[in-house]
């Protein structure tokens, strides 16, 4: 089993996600990049659950997927209410907590 190649793959996925977080101006694009980062973490958990035969690692990969669902729901709700009140979805243009 290519352990090092898989580690390299999840590193690359994580760094692509970081690149997306740094460069995107659109808030939905930021959420997409965040999903890449979370997937890289889940991939590492599953890889090491296979290497050590550990049940806990798979359970935590499951928790990562569940938390990603929560994060997407709340993030998209924020973006929708932002598009309604501030008329923008560019993350740079948002500077009010309430308004």
């Amino acid at each position: 089993m290519p352990v090092h190649a898989l580690l390299l793959l999840s590193n690359a996925l994580f760094c692509l996600g970081v690149f997306g977080m740094l460069t995107r101006r659109n808030a939905i694009g930021l959420l997409l990049a965040l999903e890449l980062i979370l997937n890289a973490a889940a991939l590492n958990f599953v890889l090491y659950s296979r290497v050590f035969g550990a049940v806990h690692a798979q359970a935590f990969a499951l928790f990562i997927i569940a938390l990603a669902a929560c994060e997407a729901v709340v993030g998209l709700a924020i973006i929708l209410s932002l598009s309604r009140s501030a008329k923008t979805i560019l993350a740079d243009d948002v500077n009010l907590l309430k308004g």
Binding site: L6, A42, V46, R50
Partner: peptide, 13 residues
Amino acid sequence: VAAVFILLEAEFL
């Protein structure tokens, strides 16, 4: 990523 999970024998995930 789901396909890689299957290759790592984590079918449920």
